[in-house]
């Protein structure tokens, strides 16, 4: 009558297990951060209090969170549409720059009224983002060249080109500001403090994307291509064009993030504009898992972490600490999600 217990791995993991796993992972990551801070001679509790007060504790803090969330929701969506079909676009940073550059071109060199210029910026930015990923996407679709490395390497190119534009041909000659263009002639209207229309549009994009992919033929066919390319091929679905389409969509979403960032939040094109939003989009997509709508709370969590970074910076801790904290969090959550799939089974 001895009970043999062993562990088995679930193929479909119930969400409560994921929730528990994530709770524990986040707790573990935060504990490591707290212990490290304590070892550096800082009081983690005091810092945590400071973080809470300067984020959700004030009007400014909440506005800041919304501004951070805007690009994060979109870069998160960009990475998410790829992961959904087993494609990894880790070049959202570059596509964001491309979108921002296209929007800046319209913002600097036209004097169109806002109701023409703003939609034009959105279209141009999305096209630019899609164009930036076109070569890696086509190479992945038809030549099976891994999109991971190619999309990533173009980030460095985009960042260098934006730096070149902002300090060279497009540099601000009016106020002589360092390393940025002059202020764009038009901006997305602000409706609540510094929070601009881009926030609403980003929310709407995420919701629209979730509904669209769940209900449309395109969403279904790409999902089939992602989970079993051979089955898709035999069912008469052309895999390569759909891989291309998904990656172009991904690039367009990241480009849109760039449009809102430059024409809503920052108002000038400058080096470092992307602020790691492209990379953090990977984290947002990881947190959201299978659900598109979950991108919204995931972006909120990531925005909180970014704000934490700013708070840490004011207390003489390098702002890069936030990158390390993010890495730790991703590691913990990725491992936690996997561990949550194991259940103990008793056999007699």
């Amino acid at each position: 009558m001895s009970a043999v217990s062993h562990r088995t791995r679930l193929t479909v993991v119930p969400s409560y297990r994921i929730a528990i796993g994530r709770g524990l992972s986040i707790l573990a990551a935060l504990s490591i951060v707290a212990i490290t801070l304590a070892a550096m001679g800082r009081s983690p509790i005091e810092l945590a209090g400071l973080v809470v007060r300067s984020t959700v504790g004030s009007r400014f803090g909440i506005e800041d969170l919304a501004l951070f969330m805007t690009p994060l929701m979109l870069t998160g969506a960009a990475v998410w549409v790829g992961i959904r079909v087993n494609l990894w676009n880790i070049g959202a940073e570059g596509q964001l720059y491309a979108g921002a550059t296209a929007a800046t071109a319209i913002g600097l060199f036209t004097h169109w009224p806002a109701f023409v210029a703003l939609p034009a910026m959105i279209v141009a930015g999305m096209l630019a983002g899609a164009a930036w990923i076109f070569v890696p996407a086509a190479a992945r679709a038809w030549l099976s060249v891994s999109e991971i490395v190619t999309s990533l390497l173009l980030n460095f190119v985009a960042s260098l080109l934006v730096y070149y534009l902002a300090t060279g041909p497009w540099a601000d000659r009016v106020t002589g500001a360092l390393a940025s263009t002059e202020r764009l002639h038009m901006a997305f209207p602000e409706f609540w403090g510094a929070v601009h229309l881009g926030f609403i549009l980003a929310l709407a994009t995420v919701i629209g994307l979730g509904v669209g992919l769940a209900k449309s033929r395109f969403g279904y066919e790409t999902a089939v291509c992602g989970s079993n390319p051979q089955a898709a091929h035999y069912a008469g679905i052309g895999v390569a064009p759909r891989i291309l389409a998904v990656l172009l969509l991904s690039g367009a979403l990241a480009g849109l993030a760039g449009v809102f960032e430059v024409a809503g939040t920052v108002h000038r094109l400058q080096g470092g504009l992307a602020n790691n939003y492209g990379y953090l989009g990977i984290v947002v997509a990881l947190l959201a898992r299978g659900s598109c709508l979950a991108l919204i709370p995931a972006a909120l969590l990531m925005a909180l972490i970014l704000d934490t970074g700013i708070v840490l910076q004011t207390t003489q801790i390098s702002s890069s600490a936030v990158l390390a904290i993010t890495g730790l969090l991703v590691l913990a959550i990725a491992a936690g999600d996997e561990l949550a799939a194991y259940v103990r089974v008793n056999r007699t």
Binding site: I148, I317, G327, E338
Partner: peptide, 23 residues
């Protein structure tokens, strides 16, 4: 060992390494 997603873990280690080395 834990078999978590390799892309995510690698990117996480890159974040961690870049952030930590800067600090």
């Amino acid at each position: 060992v834990l078999r978590a997603n390799q892309v995510l873990c690698g990117v996480a280690i890159t974040f961690l390494g870049l952030g930590l080395s800067s600090v």
